[in-house]
Amino acid sequence: MIVTNKDSYIHGNTVLQPEYVPYEEERRYEEEAKKERLKKLRKAKQRLKKKVKVIRNISLSFIIGIIFVGRYCIIYNMQMELNLVKTNISELNKENDNLKVELVKYNNLQYIEETAINKLQMVPADKGAAIYANLDKENVKITEKKVQDKIEKENLWSKLKKIIF
């Protein structure tokens, strides 16, 4: 007899319980399919991990680049401010030198006399017409009340100093 269908073939005596395994190939197929699914899941997880690593590295590089560019912008702005301050200092130094030159010009005694005579119509001083005054003598009399107030303030002040110190 020729067996055409191996799945339906019965081994042994039909009177006894046959050793028929009808789903053996299906089980193998299911196990192989399960193994393949597990392999696919592992590969998918590995691909996902690789993608996450790549995205992480790209984002990290981007953040570091932004930090560097921002830092260089800050340095550039500080340099511009420094240059501006230096130019202001040099301009102020030049202006200061010009003012010193003008001060030397106005400090000249002859220039002052010419300005006084020509612009202000002043007359040169005559030594013979000079009047001398004695400033050692007290011209203003101090009243006794003012002297007493002054003494009282000094006494009050000295008392406060003694109390505090």
Rank of each mutant, 00 (worst) to 15 (best):
I2W: 14
I10R: 03
I10V: 14
H11N: 10
G12C: 02
G12R: 06
G12I: 04
V15M: 07
V15T: 02
Q17W: 06
E19L: 03
Y20H: 10
Y20W: 15
V21F: 07
V21N: 10
E24I: 09
E25A: 07
E25L: 05
R27C: 14
E31I: 03
K35V: 04
K35I: 01
E36S: 13
E36G: 03
R37S: 12
K39G: 06
K39W: 07
K40N: 12
K40G: 01
A44M: 13
K45N: 02
K49N: 12
K50T: 11
K50V: 06
K50H: 07
V52D: 02
K53N: 11
K53D: 04
K53C: 10
K53I: 14
I55Q: 15
I63P: 01
I64F: 08
G65E: 06
G65H: 04
I66C: 12
G70K: 11
R71W: 01
R71M: 03
Y72I: 09
I75G: 05
N77Q: 12
M78F: 04
M78Q: 10
Q79M: 07
L82Q: 04
V85W: 01
T87I: 15
S90Y: 11
E91T: 08
L92Q: 02
N93S: 14
N93A: 13
K94V: 01
D97G: 05
V101G: 05
E102P: 08
L103M: 09
V104Y: 15
Y106A: 10
N107F: 03
L109M: 13
Q110Y: 12
I112C: 02
E113C: 02
E114A: 08
E114G: 04
I117V: 12
N118C: 10
V123M: 00
A125V: 05
K127E: 14
A130R: 09
I131F: 13
I131R: 15
Y132T: 11
N134P: 01
L135M: 13
E138Q: 11
K141Y: 12
V147E: 05
Q148N: 11
D149M: 05
N155R: 08
L156H: 07
L156I: 03
I164K: 01
